[in-house]
Design a binder for these strands. Structure first.
Length: 222
DNA sequence: TGAATGATCACG
DNA sequence: GTGATCATTCAT
């Protein structure tokens, strides 16, 4: 299933995405986050990546969600107000970055699974111990390692100047040598890395992008 | 395909 | 407290 979406702003006119953007259905937020730019500033370093892959997670009705069995100490941020970060540690190795969605009291989040490195690539390479740009941030654990994001960044306001998502600026991207399509081709597929809830098409990704994590074989085109 | 590695949560 | 289970990554 392939959908096309206008690259121009449809909800937030310009700049940093605000709480109203996130306080909606997780699937809609996950879809619209594709193509937006993740910005994380710390210690004078500015890291940017264009979102290439997301997954939506719901509440009690979603067996794959951390919030499936109600509120716990770990997932309580998912029940809070939208537009805050939810970072968790998993498999003893990796951190995963989420954005809280839905209205306050309703659990929901969008997992950021992959971005296209846009700015701060040298620092990302240093942290990842890897020179291949395509491997820097093409996975939820990879991108948090490249950006230096850990559970210390959980529960933060994602409308802040130093940690947010924003509309992509075509002129900035062009100056940095990144591709700037007028239209985004967005693919939809089941979520990956989960045991249940695999029938739901809650994964969204930039079609034809070399910066996505994986491409489910049964959904591969051609 | 499996190993690495540690937090979390449902048990009782 | 205990043990199964991970919204993963990398090397084999």
């Amino acid at each position: 299933m392939i959908l096309a979406a206008a690259n121009k702003a449809s909800f937030c006119p310009v700049g940093i995405l605000n709480q109203n953007f996130y306080a909606r259905d997780s699937r809609l937020v996950a879809f619209e986050l594709i193509g937006k730019v993740l910005v994380f500033k710390r210690d004078g370093d500015v890291l940017c990546g264009r979102v290439a892959e997301t997954e939506a997670y719901l509440g009690s009705q979603d067996p794959a969600s951390h919030a499936h069995r109600g509120m716990t100490p770990r997932n309580c941020v998912m029940f809070g107000p939208a537009g805050f970060s939810y970072v968790y540690f998993t498999y003893g190795f990796h951190h995963c970055l989420n954005v809280v969605t839905e209205s306050e009291g309703v659990a929901g989040a969008v997992l950021i699974r992959a971005v296209e490195p846009v700015r701060g690539i040298e620092l990302m390479m240093k942290r990842r111990g890897c020179r291949d740009v395509r491997s820097l941030t093409s996975g939820p654990g990879k991108l948090t390692q490249a950006f230096g994001i850990t559970v210390a960044q959980s529960g933060l306001d994602l409308t802040a100047d130093d940690f947010h998502f924003e509309e992509e600026n075509h002129e900035d991207l062009k100056r940095l040598g990144s591709d700037c399509p007028r239209w985004l081709r967005i693919g939809v597929s089941p979520r990956v890395g989960i045991r249940e809830g695999t029938k739901s098409l809650f994964r969204f990704f930039l079609q034809d992008s070399p910066f996505v994590s994986v491409f489910p074989k049964h959904f591969r085109e051609k």
